[in-house]
Amino acid sequence: MARTAIPGRLTKRAGWWVARLVDRREETATACTLVLEVPDWPGHLPGQHVDLRLTAEDGYQAARSYSVSAPADGERIEVTVQRVPDGEVSPYLIEGLSIGDQIEVKGPLGGYFVWRMTDPAPVLLVGGGSGIAPLMAMIRARRAAGSRVPFRLIYSVRTERDIYFADELRRRVREDQGLDVAYVYTREVPEISPAQAHRIGVADVNSHGWPPQLEPTNFVCGPTGFVEAVSDILVALGHEPRRIKTERFGPTGA
């Protein structure tokens, strides 16, 4: 469907801000980060999301939630979008939106899946596929604040080519003290990896997470099936359910 991101007659109302695309970065073959400029953006917390809304010429509207993948930089926010085949919104965001185009943004949204820098508890981040986006916002916010809170990330991807923010993650691990990153490959392992391709299991979470006695905060984000599996594992390992924060974005591939 041909679609203009925003008809000129729309003004800010009911919490929708008019934003402009100012930059875009390829993350993988199927995902990219959109840098949006939102006048008067009030700032956000790491882990929060925004709703993006498109309006067609006939007035039809479609909105979807996307995690913000970086701390606020003045009026600039970054959202990382995975292309959903046959999706209504993501193909347009990735291929149809040009630099300078306008789009409506509602946010910042959600106070639950949020890392608060004042919380001294160690943090385990478990991301599946594009579920890395809000976790990356936390890693970047920790870096920006010079926080010493120990962080561990377990990142499940199909192959090495599907890693978002790959270069930056390598750099963060070298430079940011107290950040460890472990990868789980579900389809194809890199040549040097001793492990077989597998879905995340108890051994991965047990080896690369924190013991429950340390009372860590566990953030799990990914496709619904992935999140259910990882939160079941965390509960089985003895983590209190209230210390397991989850964000599900639908069936695999969504």
Binding site: A14, G15, H49, D51, A63, S65, K106, G107, L109, G110, G111, Y112, F113, P223, T224, G225, V227, E228, T246, E247, R248, F249, G250, P251, T252
Partner: peptide, 30 residues
């Protein structure tokens, strides 16, 4: 999806933040 797998076509309450923000002054997802 294997037929015996449970339905996974849902997301979670985090996404209610936007729609509910239209009605309530506070974030109801917490």
């Amino acid at each position: 999806l294997h037929p015996e797998q449970p339905r996974m076509d849902y997301v979670d309450g985090n996404m209610l933040a936007g729609p509910l923000q239209e009605v309530f002054a506070v974030d109801l997802t917490t």
